[in-house]
Design a protein around this nucleic acid. Sequence first.
RNA 1: GUGGGCGUAGCUCAGCUGGUGGCAGCACCGGGUUGUGGCCUCGGCGGUCGUGGGUUCAAAUCCCAUCGCUCACCCCA
Length: 422
Amino acid sequence: MKFQAVNGFKDILPDEAVRWRRLEEQARAVFRRFGLREVRVPILESTGLFARAIGEATDVVEKEMYTFADKGLTLRPEATAGLLRAYIEHGLHVQQPVQRLFTIGPMFRHERPQKGRQRQFHQIDVEIIGASEPGIDAELMAMAQMVFDELGLQVSLEINSIGCPQCRPDFRVKLVDYLSSRMDGLCEDCRRRVSTNPLRALDCKNRGCRSVVQDAPSIIDSLCRDCDTHFTAVRQHLDAFGLRYAVNRFMVRGLDYYTRTTFEFTTDQLGAQSAIAAGGRYDGLIEQLGGPAKMPGIGFGMGMERIVLLMEQQADTEKAIERADLFVAALGEQALSCAAPLVHELRKLGFAAAIDYSSRSLKAQMKQADRVKARFVLILGEEEIVRHEAALRNMDSQEQSAFPLAGTAAVLAERLAGLISL
RNA sequence: GUGGGCGUAGCUCAGCUGGUGGCAGCACCGGGUUGUGGCCUCGGCGGUCGUGGGUUCAAAUCCCAUCGCUCACCCCA
């Protein structure tokens, strides 16, 4: 019986973990400049929270959640709901009128896995709660762009406004009217959508649907005065920040809670999965979840798997190298009993020191030293023990010098430290 | 949930129309260098050919089933 990882769940092995760490560190570095603070929330929440936040009728809630039915609990399919729950539960709005938060971690959705889509996937999730000004929207996008820029990734930004509860219903009626008159040009799915979720027809990939939709009424033309003003201001801010973007009036969102600004960072280099970060404003959501009335918010999620895939195939040529500072090649019992405590002392001093306890041939140990990319090797054999003098080899320059074995392990370590930290 | 492709060594893969599993590459171990890495060279370790059934004198190869992986649809980060 051989066990293997569950379908859609992936191991991230050391070589790849290096890339993941770089992504996280880069994001954290940028977030700090924008005043974001980290929160860590559970990955398990009440099923009702997600149903309420994401929307009962969405695909995510309807068929993609990992739910423990008997316990009424669900593994989070996205991060915003849980984060807002924590915000509300702990009354964070009292501490500070505007909260800028981020969290990093796994999400779970029971979909069929494919390139760039796993059942356990990871997101870097950002939320700015308590501010409705358009400058906030633009700043959030500028921040995401900065993360991509500093990772050396080429991405495109698309934005749209999907209105608010004031203006969207009117648009919806207009759109349904239009689509109903062009039913024969729509695919089977979209015909169904006309009654269930007409906005979704706007971003259908089907050819026929696309041409029908080209002439459909535009949400942007149907925005109410406030939404229109907001959207215009967002664009002005984006221009002021020097961000390149395109308005995509066909972009809609899969989760019900979005209002006004929505945006996506996309790439064409990931097969079918083009969105690597996406989000938008959700001005009614916090109140809907039992939080303070009229509390606005906006946020986005970055798909870490997808970004890591991009890092693999873009620019990212030079690998981060993890080098050992020193490898001690010990030959024989006596040498080992001298080498082991020495390595221990070096590690206490903060050095990455390695040792091979197997007492293999010097050649084999040198090979091992090379594999861990040791900068120095201390050769400690029987001869050296007798002479009280080991050999210290610089692996890059191939220079070798004598290292007197006088004193305790701690004393030797101090002296070695001086020699190898140059 | 639907459709396509693929399962041969730890990894990447040859193996055509059935006839004993590959001097295959990478990795790993060892020799050449009786105590000095990378490069080279020689050798070695390593496989229930995903699993079960069928056809056949003979199946990695053909047929059926099943499991797994993968890509795409749907949807989404």
